[in-house]
C-alpha cells in the first residue's frame, strides 16, 4: 500500500516498485515450481506403498519399525506441501518445511554415497538397490540443491501473486 502511494508521488520510488514486482514474480514462479516438484514426487510414490517403503529401507538409516511410517507418510507430506504452495497458504512456513525436508534428503543421499551403498534415491518413485554403475548421487544432490534454492528464495521473499496469503493480507 505504502509503496504504491510513494511510487505514484515519487519518480525515484517507481524503480523500487518495479524491483518489488520482479521479486514477487520470481517468488510466484518459485512457489508454483516447488509445488509442481512436490506434487510430482508425492504422486509418483503413492501408487505402490511397498516400493515406497523399500526406497526408504534401502538407505539403511531407519530401523525396520520406522521404515513403513516414513515410506507411507513422506509422499503425503510432500503432497501436503505441494497443496499449500499451490494455493499459497503459509508460503514462508511451507517453504521452510520444504527446505528442512530437502536438507534431510540431501543428507541421506550423501550418507548413502559415503557408505558406498548403491541405490536409486527414490526421489520421484522407484528406489531401492541398483548396480553401482547406475547410481547418480551427484546429480540427485545437485537437483535437490536447486529445489532448496527455490525454497530459500521463498523463505526470504514469501510474498507472491495469486496466493491465499495475499488474499488474507498477512505480512
Amino acid at each position: 500500500m505504502a509503496t504504491d502511494q510513494m511510487s505514484r508521488t515519487d519518480g525515484k520510488e517507481s524503480g523500487r516498485g518495479r524491483r518489488t514486482a520482479v521479486v514477487t514474480g520470481i517468488g510466484t514462479a518459485a512457489r508454483l515450481g516447488l509445488a509442481v516438484v512436490w506434487a510430482w514426487a508425492g504422486l509418483a510414490k503413492i501408487s505402490d506403498p511397498e516400493a515406497a517403503a523399500q526406497a526408504v529401507r534401502a538407505y539403511r538409516l531407519l530401523p525396520e519399525s520406522l521404515v513403513k511410517p516414513f515410506g507411507y507418510g513422506l509422499p503425503f507430506l510432500e503432497l501436503a506441501l505441494a497443496l499449500l504452495l499451490l494455493v499459497g497458504l503459509g508460503t514462508r512456513i511451507a517453504a521452510g518445511l520444504s527446505a528442512l525436508l530437502l536438507v534431510v534428503y540431501i543428507g541421506s543421499i550423501a550418507s548413502v554415497w559415503a557408505r558406498g551403498i548403491s541405490i536409486d534415491c527414490g526421489c520421484f518413485g522407484g528406489g531401492g538397490a541398483v548396480s553401482a554403475s547406475h547410481t547418480a548421487y551427484l546429480q540427485e544432490i545437485l537437483r535437490d540443491i536447486g529445489f532448496l534454492l527455490l525454497a530459500g528464495w521463498l523463505i526470504r521473499w514469501p510474498r507472491t501473486w495469486v496466493s491465499l496469503d495475499g488474499l488474507l493480507a498477512t505480512d
Binding site: I46, P49, A52, K68, P69, Y72, G73, P75, F76, L77, L79, A80, L81, L83, L84, L89, G90, I93, A94, L97, D165, L168, T170
Partner: peptide
C-alpha cells in the same frame, strides 16, 4: 491471522500424513 495460518498449515500436513498412513496401511 498469522497463528491461524500456521495452525492451518500444520493441520493440513498432519491430516494429509495421517490419512496417507491409514490408506496405505489398509492397502
Amino acid at each position: 491471522r498469522k497463528f491461524s495460518i500456521i495452525g492451518t498449515v500444520l493441520a493440513v500436513i498432519v491430516v494429509a500424513v495421517v490419512i496417507g498412513l491409514v490408506v496405505q496401511n489398509s492397502r
